[in-house]
């Protein structure tokens, strides 16, 4: 799509402001982080139980999503459909940041 290159340009420009954590450290994939957090938070009942760990290796970021046990079904969906949709949309957000993403819904 034509929007991809332009979108990455915008993300680079905003990267300084958005791409740092509270301590001012550089964070990979700020858009992808915001999007995975928003999507999971929108779908679960128990938002307080959500934690999302991000593990950045070079230009790829792996998100590990933890939710309350009773929310697992909602986040995964029938035949994994919701989890797959989350992965697709987070990948688009990662493209805006210039990173590859993966999303694991962690069963504990």
């Amino acid at each position: 799509m034509t929007g991809v290159d332009e979108a990455e340009g915008v993300a680079e420009a905003e990267g300084v402001a958005e791409g740092t954590d509270d301590a001012g450290n550089r964070v990979e994939g700020p858009t992808a982080r915001a999007v995975v957090s928003y999507l999971v938070g929108s779908i679960v009942e128990d938002g307080d139980a959500v934690t999302i760990d991000a593990d950045a290796r070079g230009r790829s970021v792996r998100f590990q999503v933890h939710v309350a046990p009773e929310d697992m079904g909602r986040v995964i969906g029938r035949r994994g459909r919701v989890a797959q949709a989350i992965r697709t949309v987070v990948a688009a957000a990662g493209a805006r940041d210039g990173v590859q993403t993966s999303v694991d819904i962690v069963d504990e």
């Binding site: 799509m1 034509t2 929007g3 991809v4 979108a7 999507l39 929108s42 779908i43 459909r81 919701v82 797959q84 949709a85 989350i86 697709t88 949309v89 688009a92 493209a95 805006r96």
Partner: peptide, 17 residues
């Protein structure tokens, strides 16, 4: 366009969610 994706795949995921 990023939210539409190749052949509308990202749009379909956005609609699902």
């Amino acid at each position: 366009g990023l939210l539409v994706g190749p052949r509308g795949a990202t749009l379909a995921a956005v609609q699902d969610l």
